[in-house]
Structure formats: structure tokens, C-alpha cells
């Protein structure tokens, strides 16, 4: 779809960039279809699929019954038959009913059939907190799907990364779960190449270079970290890594950075225990043991149920908590 004057002048939001990637890929590849609850005429509750049904018709951008296991299970059959389905689960809190189909079927078919049946699908999921949404609309379950072998887990933070990573995900021969940080959906605009491009899944991005400490994060927390870095004293030189993909994650990039800085803080919205931050901490101590000058610190959501809107900002890592963790780690 042609870009609007606003998009040309000011750049694309995350919503615009994902929409453009979907549109371009549907144009390029007739096997690609979008399906989910309210994705058609309504364009999705976040308008990410806006205009796709109008442009490609109701057989390519399909409103389904309200049925997450149904969406995921039929997407598996569609993929098996050679289509490239892009199911949307409306919010990450509704992944529960689809979990069995995703983890026990989509993720296992290649392995259990020794490659005879493969499931190239990309599940799009609005993800994370910070937008004052109702209950079950603000969780961060990325580690759950990383702990389930057979899937890839992608967590972009910016419009341009989202476009390139989504195109890579759709073309990936394996199931990919693509978490879209709701808090970033419309929070800013940036220049995004109009042409078709991909960003490799599994590669982190170095956002700022530094010498004293490495911060590793992904998704909406990237912006909490950037804000933190802006406020740090000049003598604190921090390297910031946006992991971008959770499974497989770029352990080499993290290890290389921590070997240089000797200190690391991991920041995530998800609860602390048994999380991606835990995995990173373990990996860093395994790979960088003799380089470490301080224990790896995790700044996370608490090990509680994600609170309702009134307390969500107290739950989510913010610049104050991140700065404090950086300070403690540097002082260790």
C-alpha cells in the first residue's frame, strides 16, 4: 500500500512497518495469508492488518471465529499444505488455548516426521505491558516459547527491525512466534526502507558502544534502557544490546560484549525466575567467567502476576530501577 504523506515526512510507526511488511509479502507471495480474530474488515484491534482485506480479499486476510486453538491448529494444516499462514493471536494473554497446538504440534512436526512435514508459519502476537490494557493483556511470556524446542522467538523493538525481522520470519521454513511490543506500536516514528529487506533471525543489535558495563534487553524495555543511559553520569560507559531474537539468541554478541566490559545487567518485562534473563545470566557465567567483575544482575518484572493497569508501571522495569542496578554493578 502506498505510504501516506505523514509516513513519508515523519517515518513509520511499528504498526505501519508491520503492516507494510505484511502487505509487501502478500503481494510477493500468493501463499501468504493472514488470519485471526478481527484482522479483516476491522484491521485488527491495533490496526496492524488495516487495509489488507480490502486489498487482498477475504480469502487472504481472514476473520476467524473466536477460537485460538482453532486459529493455530488450522494454521498448522494450512502450512502443511504449502501455504504460509500468519495467524494473529489478539493478545499474548490469549496464547493459552493455542499453546498446545503451538508447542505440541507446530513446533514438533519437523522433528517427529524427520523433516517429512514442516510447518512454516509466523504467529503474530501483541505483547507486553505499559499501555493500561485490561487483565490478560500485558504479559511477557517469551521465555515459555523459548523453553519449547522447535520454534523461533522474535521480539523486535523498532519499526525498521520489525519489518526486516517479520519478512525473515515469514520466509523462515520453521514456526516463528513474533512478539510485537504494544508499548512501542505508536510511541515513535522512524525512517524505514520502503523496499523489501530481511534482518537475520538470531542476530542482536548493538545500540550504543561502551566500555564499563553491558545492558542486554529486548522489546519495549529497549526504550526504558535508552532513557536510562541518557541520564547516567558521563563517567559510566554502558554498552546496550537489543537482543531482537530470543530463540535462538545471539550468545556470541552478548559474550563478546561482556568479555570487554566485565559487567552485565539484563533488563526484561517478564518475571525474573526461570526467564530469558536467567538464561542470559547462566550463559554469561558459563562463557565469560574469568572476565566477570561483578555478578550478572537481572532487572525484571517481579515474580508476581502482572498487576492491573494502576500498578503496572511499578511492576515494569523503569529507568530508576535500571540505573540503580547499573550503579550497583559498577560499584561492585
Amino acid at each position: 500500500m502506498p505510504r501516506t504523506p505523514q509516513m513519508i515526512e515523519k517515518g513509520l510507526t511499528l504498526v505501519d512497518a508491520i503492516n507494510e511488511a505484511l502487505s509487501q509479502e502478500m503481494e510477493r507471495d500468493a501463499r501468504v495469508i493472514c488470519l485471526g480474530e478481527d484482522v479483516g474488515l476491522n484491521g485488527g484491534v491495533f490496526r496492524v492488518t488495516e487495509g489488507l482485506q480490502r486489498r487482498f480479499g477475504p480469502d487472504r486476510c481472514i476473520d476467524t471465529p473466536l477460537s485460538e486453538s482453532g486459529i493455530m491448529g488450522t494454521s498448522i494444516g494450512l502450512a502443511m499444505a504449502g501455504m504460509r499462514p500468519i495467524p494473529e493471536i489478539q493478545f499474548e494473554g490469549f496464547l493459552g488455548p493455542a499453546h498446545d497446538q503451538l508447542v505440541n504440534h507446530a513446533a514438533r512436526f519437523r522433528n517427529r516426521t524427520r523433516g517429512a512435514i514442516t510447518i512454516p508459519l509466523t504467529v503474530r502476537v501483541p505483547w507486553g505491558g505499559g499501555i493500561h490494557a485490561p487483565e490478560f493483556h500485558s504479559d511477557s511470556p517469551e521465555a515459555i516459547y523459548t523453553h519449547s524446542p522447535g520454534m523461533k522467538v522474535v521480539c523486535p523493538s523498532t519499526p525498521s527491525d520489525a519489518k526486516g525481522l517479520l519478512l525473515a520470519a515469514i520466509r523462515d521454513p520453521d514456526p516463528v512466534i513474533f512478539f510485537e511490543p504494544k508499548r512501542v506500536y505508536r510511541s515513535f516514528r522512524e525512517r524505514v526502507p520502503e523496499e523489501d529487506y530481511t534482518i537475520p533471525i538470531g542476530k542482536a543489535k548493538l545500540l550504543t558502544e561502551g566500555t564499563d558495563l553491558t545492558v542486554v534487553t529486548w522489546g519495549a524495555s529497549v526504550f526504558q534502557c535508552l532513557e536510562t543511559l541518557d541520564s547516567l553520569p558521563d563517567d559510566q560507559s554502558v554498552e546496550l544490546i537489543d537482543l531482537r531474537t530470543i530463540n535462538p539468541f545471539d550468545a556470541d554478541a552478548v559474550a563478546a560484549s561482556v568479555e570487554k566490559t566485565g559487567r552485565c545487567v539484563v533488563v526484561q518485562e517478564a518475571p525474573k525466575t526461570c526467564s530469558m534473563a536467567s538464561e542470559l545470566s547462566a550463559t554469561i557465567q558459563e562463557r565469560c567467567f574469568l572476565h566477570l567483575l561483578a555478578p550478572v544482575q537481572r532487572v525484571c518484572g517481579f515474580d508476581t502476576i502482572m498487576p492491573y493497569a494502576k500498578l503496572e508501571l511499578e511492576y515494569l522495569p523503569d529507568p530508576k530501577r535500571i540505573a540503580e542496578a547499573i550503579g550497583h554493578t559498577l560499584a561492585y
Partner: peptide, 30 residues
């Protein structure tokens, strides 16, 4: 479970009932 090419069956399904949705997806593609 490595179904030979050209044999139009899925492997047997162990968890109960999950395979029906795959069938519907296949039929939908057709």
C-alpha cells in the same frame, strides 16, 4: 513418522483430538 513423499497421510496423532484442526487447515488450503 517420516511419511514417504506422495503418501497423503499425517503421522498417527497421540494427544487426543488435536489432529482434527490440522485436517481442517489442509482442507482449507485445498
Amino acid at each position: 513418522n517420516a511419511i514417504p513423499s506422495g503418501v497423503n497421510v499425517t503421522p498417527i496423532a497421540i494427544p487426543i483430538g488435536t489432529q482434527m484442526l490440522h485436517a481442517v487447515g489442509l482442507a482449507w488450503a485445498y
